[in-house]
Amino acid sequence: MALYPDYPIRTERLTLRPFTRGDVDAVYAYRRREDVARYLFDVALSREECALAVQQRIGQVALEADGDKIILAAELNQTSSVIGEVSLILRSADARQGEVGWIFDPDYQGQGYATEAATALLDLAFGPGDQHRVSARCDVRNGSSWRLMERLGMRREAHFREHALFKGEWDEEFVYAMLRREWLGRRN
C-alpha cells in the first residue's frame, strides 16, 4: 500500500515535516558532531555534505516501492528549531515490512523528544501505512537508541555479533521489532 502522508505531523511538542533547503544549518549543527556520527554509517558531515543530504531528504516524503523512505525534520513547536530527524523505510511492500530510525541532536536528548517523534512515526506506519511489522536497529553500544526501542514496546529480536566491519572495527548490532497488533494494543 502506498503512503502519502498529510504534512506536517504534529505532536504535543514537535512538528514532523519534510525538509527544506533552509534546514541545512540546523542539520549541520548536529550532523557535524563526532558523538552523533559515532553510530551512523556516515562520518561527521561538512556543511556541503549536509546541504547534499538535506537536498536528498526534500523528496523523501512518500512510500510507494521497496526501499522508499520518508525522512522528516523534527522541529520544536516552541522555537521552530530543527533538533533531529526521523525516518520510515519501506523494506517490503508485499510483506508490509518497514523500518524506523532517528537521529537527534545530543543537546536535546533525555527530554522525551525522540520518543515523541518515534511514536508519531509508528502511528503513521501502523495506521495509514498499514505496515504489518516495523523494525529498528542500532549499534549495541548506543544505549540511548536501544532503550528508546524498548520504551516504544519493541522487542529485541537479534544481536548480531561481529557481523560486519564498521569504521575499522567489528560491529555488533541489535535488531528490535514489533507487530501492528502489538502497537495498536499499546495505543488502545
Rank of each mutant, 00 (worst) to 15 (best):
V86L: 04
V27I: 02
Q55D: 15
Q97S: 09
L88Y: 06
Y28G: 06
Y30A: 05
F126L: 01
S46I: 07
G67P: 03
E34Y: 07
D94N: 10
F104Y: 14
L72D: 09
E99A: 14
R133Y: 00
L88G: 11
V86W: 06
Q97R: 14
R96A: 15
V100R: 02
F126K: 06
E64C: 11
P106E: 01
V82L: 15
D107T: 11
L76C: 07
N77W: 01
T119V: 08
F19Q: 03
C50F: 03
F41K: 00
L124S: 07
Q109F: 00
I71F: 00
S87A: 14
A93E: 12
F104H: 03
Y30H: 04
G67V: 09
L52N: 10
G127R: 03
Y113K: 06
Q97N: 13
L72S: 14
D107M: 10
E34G: 07
V24K: 02
D94T: 14
L72H: 11
Q60K: 14
E34N: 09
S87W: 06
A136T: 04
G101I: 12
A93T: 10
I71H: 00
A120I: 03
Y30M: 05
H132F: 01
R91C: 10
R57M: 15
A26W: 02
Q78R: 13
G22S: 11
E85T: 13
R32S: 15
L76G: 10
T79I: 08
D105N: 15
Q56Y: 10
L76E: 00
S80P: 03
C138R: 01
G129T: 08
